[in-house]
Amino acid sequence: MAGHGAPDLRADGRGLSVVVLASQWHQTVMDGLVDGTRRALREAGVTDVVELRVPGVFELPVAAARVTTEPVDAVVALGVVIRGGTPHFDYVCDAATQGLTAVSVRTGVPVGFGVLTCDDEQQALDRAGLPGSAEDKGHEAATAAIAAARALAGYHRP
């Protein structure tokens, strides 16, 4: 299991504002990721949440760039890309990863990376946080974003 050895990142999210960006492809998987994210935000006490659906994973970076032009403490980006028979998979995964990283570094706003990059649909279902799934990557991405936002909020240069 990929989560073996993961730290306990639970953090108090009260008072934080979070934007959840979710792609529309692979509805069943996305429903699980979004539900896991909502549950993590609720558990952390985050009440200022905006959800925005975008067409696909490729659109997540531009959406993150737009929503971080206004005050926000964290972004959670959710999507799934399933490998096909062409290099399209590689281009979309690389563009999303590089784009979301660039937004986070440029703005200083943590972006929880909840983009599944899977070889087949079963791998995506196993990570979607659905009943019977081994992992809940939506919950993990939201928890990481909250923990990073809380850590950065406490940073003051000595």
Rank of each mutant, 00 (worst) to 15 (best):
M1P: 15
A2K: 12
A2R: 15
G5F: 05
P7M: 08
D8M: 07
L9F: 09
G13E: 07
G13V: 06
L16P: 06
S17H: 07
S17E: 05
V19E: 11
A22Y: 07
A22W: 04
A22Q: 04
S23V: 00
Q24Y: 02
Q24H: 07
H26K: 06
H26Q: 11
Q27R: 15
T28H: 14
T28M: 13
V29R: 14
M30P: 06
L33D: 03
V34A: 13
G36T: 01
R38M: 08
L41V: 04
E43T: 04
G45T: 03
G45C: 10
V46I: 07
T47E: 15
T47I: 06
D48Q: 15
D48E: 13
D48G: 01
D48L: 00
R53L: 05
R53P: 00
V57T: 13
V57W: 01
E59F: 07
L60V: 01
P61N: 00
A63Q: 02
A65D: 11
V67D: 10
V67A: 11
T68P: 10
T69H: 15
E70I: 00
E70D: 12
P71M: 01
V72E: 07
A74G: 14
A74D: 13
A74T: 07
V76S: 14
G79A: 04
V81P: 08
V81Q: 05
I82H: 13
R83M: 04
R83A: 12
G84N: 04
G85D: 09
G85S: 06
T86C: 01
P87D: 08
H88F: 09
H88V: 01
F89N: 06
F89S: 09
Y91S: 03
D94E: 15
T97R: 13
T97E: 09
Q98P: 00
G99P: 06
T101L: 14
A102M: 08
V103N: 08
R106L: 10
T107M: 05
T107P: 02
G108A: 11
V109D: 11
P110S: 12
G112A: 14
G114F: 11
V115G: 03
L116Q: 02
L116S: 03
C118D: 02
Q123I: 00
L125K: 05
L125W: 02
D126W: 01
A128K: 09
A128F: 04
G129L: 00
G129M: 00
L130Y: 08
P131N: 04
S133T: 02
S133Y: 01
A134P: 09
A134Y: 05
A134C: 01
A134S: 13
A134W: 06
E135N: 10
D136R: 06
K137W: 05
H139A: 05
E140P: 04
A141N: 04
T143D: 01
T143W: 04
A144K: 11
A145M: 09
A145V: 06
A145S: 11
I146L: 04
I146N: 05
A147M: 08
A149M: 07
A149R: 06
R150E: 08
A151R: 11
A151T: 11
A151G: 07
L152Y: 08
A153K: 13
Y155C: 03
Y155E: 13
Y155F: 15
H156D: 02
H156A: 12
